[in-house]
Design a protein around this nucleic acid. Structure first.
Lengths: 220, 220
DNA sequence: CGGCAGTTTGATCCCGGTCAAAATATGTGG
DNA sequence: CCACATATTTTGACCGGGATCAAACTGCCG
């Protein structure tokens, strides 16, 4: 099963890339790198989920993005940035591969498919960020939260008997940081939704039981 | 004066790029390309300002970005997208160069500096979008509008005797679409600011008289 | 001068933030 | 296994920023 960044490469090429990687593990809640730190490495997420977070001058946090297993992250080198633009936190226990930033250009020029595939995933993220901006400008809190949950289950949902479960621990606070609201509002909404059988949630755990009705709430 | 995308190239290389361009002019308010249309060309903005707009299913518009003269835009090919992710509208009369999308890869591989310079400006835009998301999540309307005006004057401000003037026609409605508010709120705020000598505005025209106090309003 | 596009201003309403406190899990050490 | 400390969630009461509704006003262009 080839990972997206390598899908266009043959075995010896992949081997040559992997040989130069070192592997690192992070506990849930640990930060992989900090906003503003020198971008000395880029990473491939083998297992777990990464939360990409920005912090305002006064300490408020906003979650920009969640990255599912299989994708590259910390790819500041692709933008010729010498510093990470956001903080990466392990949302669950996480396993990564990791290369020195200096290898980026080499990979891009040596392995044609590598560049095109990764620039494609960057494109996807740009589109996603655009959608976030659009949502934040036009949608109400209820719709934003509905969509945020849907994004999470689409990206890293696990089927269970009750519905689709978000595969990493996530608190009301986390959801509020994804949607620009407060944990109180999120809690109220989830309670209401639970009453109607839309979702089922325990502590740090959210299961979407009726994705279709959530889509409707999120606005066609 | 070399344009950013060409700053690392020598004369004959630039010539070779320009020779393959065709030049196009657009009237103010005209759309250069539409969201969702096949991305058959990419552009260099020689003169004027481009407004990048997304439209919601129900017709509301959100301005994602303004692009000042000298930058590339419509660079969907850089992301391997076959369709434009947003609409580009001429905010003023606009002159562009334009190449078929098929040339992108050729330029990137033939002219090393071209790729690195453009990926750098993409990086800048990603950072800017991130900041937008952060603002939208944490700042109040007043702060967002203050910052939006500051961004505009930094990027395309012209010094006048009264202050710094935004160099293209811009309405209250436009500002509201940049900040996710209503033209009413923008109007009220601008009126209040005008009373305090912060700005001076005529129809479709905004002059920032006291940038420093605006910065303060926008939050350190 | 009529008409449209843009702006201003007032009145009202409500979503969702803030403040406050209690209830429920989880973990920890004795 | 229990008691206590801590993290997360729930719920209620209240309030205010900014949207919405409505209407008048002001250039500006043909």
């Amino acid at each position: 099963m080839p990972l997206p960044p390598f899908s266009k490469l043959d075995r010896p090429q992949i081997r040559s890339i992997l040989d130069r990687a070192i592997s690192r593990r992070f506990d849930a809640g640990t930060t992989v790198f900090d906003e503003g730190a020198p971008a000395c490495s880029f990473y491939l997420l083998l297992d777990g989920t990464i939360r990409v977070v920005k912090t305002t001058p006064d300490g408020e946090q906003v979650t920009a993005l969640h990255i599912p297993a299989g994708q590259l992250f910390g790819i500041a080198p692709a933008f010729r940035r010498d510093t990470y633009p956001a903080t990466a936190i392990a949302a669950s226990e996480v396993v990564t591969l990791c290369w020195p930033a200096s290898l980026w250009d080499q990979f891009v020029s040596d392995f044609p498919g590598f560049g095109s595939e990764t620039y494609k995933t960057i494109g996807d993220r740009v589109v996603e960020m655009n959608n976030r901006i659009l949502e934040m400008s036009t949608q109400h809190v209820e719709q934003r939260i509905a969509r945020a949950l849907l994004r999470l289950v689409n990206q890293s949902g696990k089927k269970t008997t009750e519905g689709i479960e978000i595969s990493f621990p996530i608190t009301r606070q986390d959801v509020s940081e994804m949607t620009g609201t407060t944990l109180h509002t999120v809690s109220r909404l989830l309670s209401a939704w639970e009453k109607n059988g839309l979702v089922s949630s325990k502590r740090k755990k959210i299961i979407v039981c009726d994705p279709h009705r959530l889509v409707v709430l999120g606005g066609a």
